[in-house]
Simulated scan of single mutants.
Amino acid sequence: MASSADQSVALVAGESSGDLLGSRLLAGLRAQMPDLRLHGIGGPHMAEQGFVSDWPMDQLTVRGLFEIIPRYREIKGIQNALRDKLLQERPAAFVGVDYPGFNLGLEEQLRKAGIPTIHFIGPQIWAWRGGRIKKIARAVSHMLVIFPFEESIYRQAGIPVTYVGHPLAEVIPMQPDMPGARWRLGLSEMTRVVAILPGSRMSELKHNGPGFLEAARLLRQRDPSLQFVTPMAGEKQMVFFNSQIEQGGYQDLQIKLVLGQSHAAMEAADAVLVASGTASLEVALFKKPMVIAYKMIWASYQIMRHMGYQPWVGLPNILAREFLVPELLQDAATPRALADAMWQQLEDHAHQRRLVHRFTEMHHTLLRDTSKESAQAVSEVLQGRRPGASRI
């Protein structure tokens, strides 16, 4: 086998959550193969591991079935250009980090050309679009999954799979340090804190922001001492959300906007109003009460709600197999409903204690040395071995 100095591995992460997850894999891979050349598309966390992004990750970040239409030609052009680059380079392997709409199509073409393909984080076929399993079988040489129940799904479909645990379970402490987080963010320890997380994408801010802000106003009417903190994924998002605050007349709420630091905001909070997605799982790992909410354009929602296989959309509820925390989606996510649900999360102390217990159990279930486990699986693919075969 060629030395790692002679090899390259290409990766694609299309959004901030994938960038963080991908960085954990790269940290383990760097430890095993320090000279490996790493490039593709990724963000700042992956760059910290020596990853070189051939295109800015922001050019891929979009969510929703109809929201992608105006950007389809641009994104398809990037996919084609990257495909041609990789077919010429022939990396030792390609790793698609989540972002299945882009990565599975690319993986199918690369695998057909003889390049091993690894998909890190299985698409949520257990939640919706189960027919994707056939495309995955064609596109993916090996699947790395982050939830334990996913292994049997892929094995039954004949897809090689390894459960590597969830990287966030390693990053987030088992015992949150609320006073320390409040000190870091400049928040008072004397009054309650509500973290508001309307999403990291511009489209999410557009659809979720106004309702989340009005809910905050209603909560402040019930408790004038409440503090609000909102982490922003980037400068562009901060400017946009600040404009929503000004245009809606919410300056009196004195919401503390911080760049990044989403984990500090969650850790500092008594309760969190969070857009559905990976962030809701992060809140659960911080053992916090929450309300999960989401809005998107009407047409996208009508299609997606008919494609779901189970009654939950929030990851904490999916993992628990019950409605541990409220979910308010689309028309149900009115400011009044959000405020009422959040108030209950703040006031119901027995519920809070139950959540701490359940979320702690969840944390232990997801906790593995994900960086090492995922890197080991990738390393074995590079060596031409089936991951896990030597460990059975």
Rank of each mutant, 00 (worst) to 15 (best):
Q383Y: 00
G248V: 15
R37G: 12
A13L: 07
E282I: 06
V229Y: 01
M307P: 13
L110K: 05
R217I: 03
K372T: 11
L219N: 03
K287D: 08
I118K: 02
A265L: 02
G22K: 02
R184S: 12
V239C: 10
S141D: 14
R30V: 08
R321T: 13
Q330V: 01
M174S: 14
V291A: 12
I153K: 11
A375P: 06
M342K: 02
I318T: 07
V193F: 08
Q376F: 01
G209P: 02
P198M: 00
I121R: 03
I115Y: 06
Y250I: 10
L355T: 03
L65G: 06
A195L: 07
G234K: 06
Q345S: 03
L110Y: 02
L328E: 09
L185K: 01
F120N: 05
L144H: 12
F323Q: 14
A127E: 08
W55V: 07
V164K: 01
F94P: 10
T230N: 09
Q244R: 13
A81H: 07
I303M: 15
L259D: 15
A195N: 05
S23K: 07
V258K: 08
K287H: 10
N80G: 07
S379C: 04
E361K: 15
G308R: 15
H142P: 15
R63W: 04
L82P: 06
Y154E: 09
Q244A: 09
G158I: 06
D6N: 13
L205N: 07
Q261D: 13
D177K: 01
A332N: 09
L110V: 06
I153D: 09
H306T: 14
R368I: 02
F359L: 05
